[in-house]
Computed example of a mutant assay.
Amino acid sequence: MSFVAPDYRAELRRFVHGYAGAHQDAILRAGDVFDFYSSLMTDERVRGDARGLVAAVLAYFVVPDDVLPEEDLGPYGLLDDLFLAAHVFRMLRRQLAPEVIADAWAEDDEITKVMDVVYSESRGALGKLRRDVLRVAGLS
């Protein structure tokens, strides 16, 4: 019997597909945000602290028992994952060359505008839980 790794990207896109509810502008971008961080992880130009930040975001996406568990909350539970991703994006913009960020973003719209929406919506939804997200991710 051979092992077939799960396609987390595809599952994440299916999970949020058709979501209509609170903070949908951020939640519907979860697959794009995950793809962005996956691309950064495989980019040899991303090194040192930046690589550690990227790994923290990807790990947080796949941990089942995070601050807002998707099992209990459905797609709404991705808001903590998205907050962390947008928070780290603000850090990475100071550490990575603009072309590294641009190369990792596969979508047509501007990543900075997307991440601003994701940050604003997820930050507002989390309130004081933001500190817990950063602590669980090892960034506090």
Rank of each mutant, 00 (worst) to 15 (best):
A125E: 08
A10S: 15
D25G: 07
T112V: 12
A50S: 12
Q95P: 02
R93N: 03
A5G: 05
P64S: 12
V54L: 01
V133Q: 10
Q95L: 15
S122I: 12
G77E: 05
A59R: 12
A97W: 02
Y8E: 10
V117P: 00
L79E: 00
I27L: 14
E99Y: 02
F36S: 04
D32A: 15
A106Q: 13
A137D: 03
Q95C: 06
E99I: 02
Y8H: 09
G138E: 03
H17R: 14
V118E: 07
L139A: 05
G21Y: 04
R45N: 00
R93K: 13
F83T: 06
S120M: 04
M91A: 08
A102P: 08
G77Y: 07
L68W: 07
D116H: 09
P75Q: 04
A97N: 12
D32S: 14
R13I: 15
L73R: 10
D103G: 13
S120L: 11
R14P: 04
L28Q: 13
F83R: 07
M1C: 08
R135L: 08
P64E: 06
A20T: 08
E110P: 02
S122C: 09
F61M: 09
D65I: 01
L28R: 15
L126V: 03
K128E: 09
A50I: 00
L129S: 12
Y19C: 14
Q24R: 15
P6A: 14
S122H: 07
R94E: 11
P69E: 01
R47A: 01
F89S: 08
V67I: 13
D7H: 10
E110T: 03
V62I: 14
A56M: 01
M91D: 11
A97Q: 12
V4A: 15
G18D: 04
H87G: 09
A104P: 00
D109K: 11
V16F: 14
L126M: 02
G138N: 09
R45E: 00
A104W: 02
A10C: 06
V114D: 10
S2G: 11
A104K: 05
L73M: 10
V4C: 11
S39F: 02
L58P: 02
E99A: 07
L78E: 03
A5R: 15
P75D: 04
E99R: 07
L84A: 06
V117A: 09
V63I: 06
G48Q: 03
V33S: 02
E107Y: 05
Y76A: 12
R90S: 12
F15E: 08
R45Q: 00
Y60N: 13
E11P: 00
R131V: 01
G48R: 03
Y60F: 11
V33M: 09
V118Q: 04
